[in-house]
Simulated scan of single mutants.
Amino acid sequence: MTVDYGWVIAAALAVVVILAIVIARLAKHLRRLKLRVTELEQHVEVTAAVAAHPKKPEDRLIGVVVNVSKDDAGHATKLVHEACAAAGMPDPFIQASTAEDPGVVMTERAIEMGCDVVIAAGGDGTLRAVASKLTGTDVALGIIPLGTGNLFARNIGLPYHDLTACTAEAIHGTPHRVDTLQLELRRPGGRSEQEISLVIAGGGLDAEVMEDTREILKARAGWLAYGEAGLRHVMGARKTVEVKLDDGEPETYRLRSVLLANCGTLQAGIRLIPEAKFDDGHMDVALFTPRHALDWARVIAKTAFRYSADIPVMKVRQARSGRLTMAEPMRFQIDGDAVGDVISVSARVEPESLIVHGASTEILENPEH
């Protein structure tokens, strides 16, 4: 019997085409089903969070302090409006920060309005301003990270690249108490200022880098812009600093940089000070004494390999309070914001003084969260 291979091939091709169509339709159906399941899961999570909150949705008021200079500011406020509406809550009380006031007065107004959460929609500077008025209160802090570094959001485990998820956490997230660092800066001339730090405050190299990072590079390259400034300042001169921690005796160091850390993770998951945790009741004081490039290589190696022990050019000490006294004025920064010259800094930890929605201790074991 003669087999007509042309018909066989045609039939096989037809079967392949039909199977491809069926598989494509099934895949499309599965994608829709998966999307629907995700939507239902999110709905259940929000519903459970709303039900678990001590107030009824209609009695909750969400405040927002937004840095309108950020690219995603409009999108962030839209997300908050939508989330409040979906939960049956009143319209949020939204205020814009200004160049003169990054959020202090706005937060005071939100507290007076009866907001039970005030969301900081901006960078770490906006966050710090809002937190300065919420510390010691029962009003929770929510975070929608819109900045270059978003260091605190990274350290507490927020999905900082997903503004929708951050909005849900800010409004409905589990409250967690975190420590704050209360700072007193003394300026040349004797004037004193009270400040707060949530991440890392420091003098020397880090402050010089923050002050000298070019805005145009930050806009184009994000946090990588800090590296360019770092290369220009890394080999600067060390300065004499007296360090007194808790009730210990003062010690004098020749330092290139000194850090007071409430958290220890930087951009790209770099754990500069692995010991630093945002809820352990201590600050971690890091003292950097490098003299040349080889010393800096040791610091980089310690950081890269997460080596916990001290090395000669980088010592870390834990304390609840401390005082830095500079022999000459030193540049200083707080959570990535350059704040000018100081001649002394007093710091104390306020344990569990700030309520944050969405903070998670899982980040301590999983820094790549």
Rank of each mutant, 00 (worst) to 15 (best):
K78S: 12
S346Y: 09
H233R: 15
D341V: 04
V241A: 10
H75S: 02
L127V: 12
Y160N: 05
H176K: 03
D71G: 09
N366L: 07
A286E: 01
D284H: 11
L245G: 02
D341Y: 13
I363V: 12
V118M: 02
A96H: 08
H172M: 01
Y226S: 00
P250W: 04
V178W: 04
V80I: 13
Q194V: 14
V117K: 08
L224V: 09
A286V: 01
G88Y: 03
A12M: 09
A12W: 09
P290M: 04
H357P: 07
A83N: 08
T77W: 12
G136Q: 02
K78T: 11
N155E: 08
N67A: 06
K302S: 06
Y160L: 15
V22E: 11
A27C: 08
A268K: 12
I311S: 09
S132T: 02
V80R: 11
H233G: 13
A168C: 08
W223R: 08
S308N: 08
V50C: 11
G6H: 10
A129M: 09
P188I: 03
G173N: 06
K28N: 06
D280E: 00
G125I: 10
G74C: 05
E45I: 00
M326L: 15
I273E: 01
K133P: 02
V178N: 04
A12E: 07
R214E: 04
V66R: 00
E350S: 07
V345S: 00
N262C: 14
E215P: 15
T213Q: 11
G222S: 10
D246Q: 04
G63C: 06
E45C: 05
G227Y: 09
F93D: 08
C84S: 06
G204W: 09
V64G: 01
F152M: 10
Y5N: 12
V22M: 01
M1Q: 13
G248R: 02
E365P: 04
P102D: 01
E100R: 15
G142K: 06
V356H: 14
I343M: 14
L13E: 10
R306T: 05
E251V: 03
F93N: 02
P351G: 03
G136C: 03
L224N: 13
E242W: 14
P367H: 10
V118G: 00
I334M: 00
A12S: 14
I21Q: 11
I62T: 11
V258L: 15
T148A: 05
V15S: 03
D124M: 10
A237D: 06
C166L: 00
I311R: 01
V16Q: 04
F152Q: 03
G202W: 09
M210D: 10
K277G: 14
K55V: 12
G103W: 10
P290T: 10
G189A: 04
A14W: 08
A153K: 11
A129C: 03
D246F: 02
G322M: 06
